[in-house]
Design a protein around this nucleic acid. Structure first.
Lengths: 225, 225
DNA sequence: ATCAACGAGATTGTTGACAAGATGTTTCGA
DNA sequence: TCGAAACATCTTGTCAACAATCTCGTTGAT
């Protein structure tokens, strides 16, 4: 690990490191990212850092102002709602297609995920539930065969890390979202496309409501001028 | 014009030049883009070209393979259909919101666009119609206030230039799409959100059908290994 | 005490040269 | 005549130094 990660290797390494720092709260919105500092602390060159920052800006995780450097983008609650609205329609599309196109193996795995989710909620295993949640969404997207929507959804998730963090902490959230997830699973497994779309919509409408009600609780950090 | 466009200035200039070359058919899918050649022909430095290529790759217009350079991405009919499916759900979202949120001025302009479209089709003014078409879609998105969807749709359009070109040339296309556009306008102006979504869906379903039926007519250019 | 101009230090932007790798061609052997 | 290895050329990747610009603390005047 003492080797210096150079060039293209460092590029993805730095990008991932910053994403992780953001997820774990080590970086907060508005914070400046100085190329030299990052290069030194991650053991790469400034060139690699620069390209990583460009990538993250393309994902809308950072914001780069010419001659002033990169900062962590502050996502307002309103924007988080808009992002979730877009996610909603794209996931409805995927759910509809998945209900028709999923392979028997995928339907079987969906069933297993549902059973595991019930158990995780009953046991209070929040981490497990969170992982299953992510796996469920991924599997529905994969089963839909909609590569384009998959990429779009991936992009959409980038700036949301902060809010996912916030929502997951709300007490009672898992038991509220569990039936919604089970409804999605049931519709997809049963091959009922319209029901799958409706279930996905209902779930994401609920997420939007949660986002809105969290607005008062935790105001968005002020983006420093 | 004899000045050398350097750095950040050249970056956007080169990117736009390549986009234009793609629209006008000067660049075809699979074609290699050599950094030095581009730098020389556009009068910039290789660095600027390099960053422009990165941008275009992020827009999925180009494909960059390490150590092998950039080539124009070949978009299959299947992928064009998937792109249009995503556009469909996102534009439905925008249409629904626009029906509710559009300002009186925006509704008035939509009305004017509709009238102009009728006239353009009646006069056989295809270029005018094409411009109005684009303006209509933009205005609906703008009126929706959905900035996130706007960005997503912008990204989605990048790789589609080739197909837009192909579809617009089909005889009888304008008179087929005109009523669909008018239906969208009527629903948005009238504030009928569900009807606006249905009209947008119907329009894009038709585009998808056109794409599919164009598959046989013009096979995708083979991406050279 | 407040404000504006100044300047030192910090930070990003740009360039040109060099290194590493890929491509295509020529030559040699079967 | 065909195929494979060696070579020359072309192309991209990387780096380090330099230049341009911005930030922020200091100074001085009102």
């Amino acid at each position: 690990m003492t080797d210096k990660l150079t060039g293209a290797a460092g590029r993805e390494y730095v990008a991932e490191a910053i994403r992780h720092a953001l997820r774990s709260g080590d970086l907060v919105p508005g914070q400046r990212l100085v190329e030299n500092d990052l290069a030194e602390s991650y053991g790469t060159t400034r060139g690699a850092v620069r390209e990583a920052l460009q990538d993250l800006a393309a994902e809308e995780i950072l914001e780069i102002v010419p001659r002033r450097g990169a900062r962590v983008r502050a996502v307002s609650v309103e924007e988080a709602v808009q992002i979730t609205e877009c996610r909603s329609v794209l996931e409805q599309l995927c759910a509809r297609k998945a209900a028709v196109r999923a392979t028997p193996e995928q339907r079987a795995e969906l069933g297993r995920i549902g059973a595991d989710m019930r158990r995780a909620v009953a046991d209070g295993a929040w981490d497990t539930y969170s992982g299953l949640n992510q796996r469920l969404h991924e599997l529905v997207i994969e089963a839909s065969g909609q590569e384009v929507a998959r990429r779009q959804l991936g992009r959409l998730n980038g700036p949301m890390v902060r809010f996912q963090f916030r929502l997951a902490l709300r007490p009672g959230r898992p038991s509220q979202s569990l039936p919604q997830h089970l409804a999605i699973i049931e519709a997809v497994v049963g091959g009922d496309a319209p029901a799958a779309a409706r279930a996905a919509e209902a779930h994401l409408d609920d997420v939007i409501e949660q986002l809105r009600s969290s607005a008062a609780a935790v105001p968005a950090p002020a983006p420093r001028a």
